[in-house]
Design a protein around this nucleic acid. Structure first.
Lengths: 249, 249
DNA sequence: CGTAGCTTTGATGTAGGTCAAGAAATGTGG
DNA sequence: CCACATTTCTTGACCTACATCAAAGCTACG
């Protein structure tokens, strides 16, 4: 829309996302675009960040899906968050001296590596960028909080509905999928580890939602058949996702 | 220990905490100390921040306990986090245009109000402060993630043990309580809403842990009777709490 | 075109919820 | 300091949502 975001070098999904939180100066944009150097492909199922790792890099996800998860002593896994293009992988892991989680691609991905040192330098050098990243992190924390509510106080079917709706809203924001559905490469095992359920129960819940005529999840595609009803059923209030400065009055 | 932190005006629990994440300049310290103006007392049970509120303030908690929570359509409540002295209340609520959660004191508290405008100005004006706040927010997000794992993949008794251990570690860090236990003003209803359980089951779980000789929680006091066993039982790994730059090698 | 990973379904078990009711604290006004 | 009210704690009986176990059909890709 303006001179800066029209430039192919300075424009990126992440830059657009961050500048929705706080205005970025030309120099902020330059620093950010420099962090996009070092782009690579990573295979599905191979950890890019390991729980406990020190000095880990963060990654800007350009294409594909990934997730961050924690493993428990008994071998159980809890997926903390699912990431889609435009998200940053392992920001926390890079900001803190030691990563508290692992990150793995769910599909093959393309991502730009930001070594810890470089990221911290960029933030220290670029105050506008640091503020935007802080606000974006706050937004991610709001999503984490909603996920936590999901696990703590909703039934399996409500959790599933809520999760699929949230994913839909996030995907639409980055131009993947429209209001009626989206492509979704998550297996029922991944859904189970995300929603704190067993894979078997995920299957039953999906069948139930399908039979109710609310959503279908088949052949890697989610389709909303009665969006309004699903929103009501799952108690989905998307305001925690919004960050446009659309304040009342 | 140095000239700055020795000064009574520039020293505060929050300043000490933040400077553990990133060095604060004299000017950062001044800006931060200015945010401690406007100190007041707030009564237990009266929301200081409401879910959905715009332009809400954040608060630096000086004494007492508080919690942030979300209410669901059906009336159920999920407590997202419990705050103790030295913590910031409603940081997310103040950084984002609209608060995604409510905050209420559990006991009467003393806290310094930071209006949204003032906080954002301070962060924009004080890059070192912004970076420290970002890192501290990353640390809080790590705690959120662990809470999420707790709800998703641990049994009721494990959750309880884990939560009581985490609280103990956090309290010790701010000089409240030692390795053997601490004063804890949380009711079983609050514990239930935190851990995603019913109050009745909280009671049973506490009895079970007591009978196992692991912890007691009686008359507002938590006492660890076999710390090592409890840590093992709950699968508690405190590394997600640490932020001292104690990297290996 | 085989085999490893997904999905689907049924049968059965259990952790934790709900309901109910009494006991113990805690607080409040007189 | 006491009577009364309110909240918090405790326990028992019963129920349900989800887990676990087992096994068969699908899909896909090497």
């Amino acid at each position: 829309m303006n001179d800066i975001s029209a430039s192919p070098i300075l424009d990126s999904a992440l830059a657009r996302k961050l500048s929705a939180f706080a205005p970025l100066s030309v120099s902020d944009h330059l620093v950010l675009s420099d962090l996009h150097r070092r782009r690579r492909r990573y295979s599905a199922g191979v950890d890019t960040i390991h729980q406990g790792q020190t000095r880990s890099s963060a990654f800007i996800l350009a294409s594909g899906w990934a997730c961050s998860y924690k493993l428990l002593p008994g071998g159980a896994r809890q997926i903390v968050s699912v990431q889609i293009p435009g998200d940053v992988l392992g920001l926390r892991s890079a900001l803190l001296p030691r990563s508290d989680q692992s990150v793995e691609p769910i599909t093959p991905i393309h991502a730009s590596e930001m070594p810890q040192r470089e990221l911290l330098d960029a933030l220290a050098r670029s105050p506008g960028l640091a503020l935007a990243v802080l606000l974006s992190a706050a937004n991610e924390a709001a999503m984490l909080a909603e996920h936590l509510v999901n696990l703590g106080r909703r039934t399996a079917a409500e959790r599933m509905g809520h999760f699929l709706l949230e994913l839909g809203a996030r995907l639409r924001r980055v131009g993947l999928g429209d209001g009626s559905g989206y492509h979704c490469p998550l297996s029922q095992y991944v859904l189970a580890d995300t929603l704190g359920l067993s894979a078997v129960h995920v299957n039953r819940v999906l069948r139930e939602l399908r039979q109710q005529g609310l959503v279908t999840f088949q052949k890697g595609r989610v389709d909303f058949h009665d969006l309004a009803a699903l929103v009501a059923f799952a108690g989905f209030d998307r305001s925690y996702l919004d960050h446009d400065q659309q304040m009342s009055a």
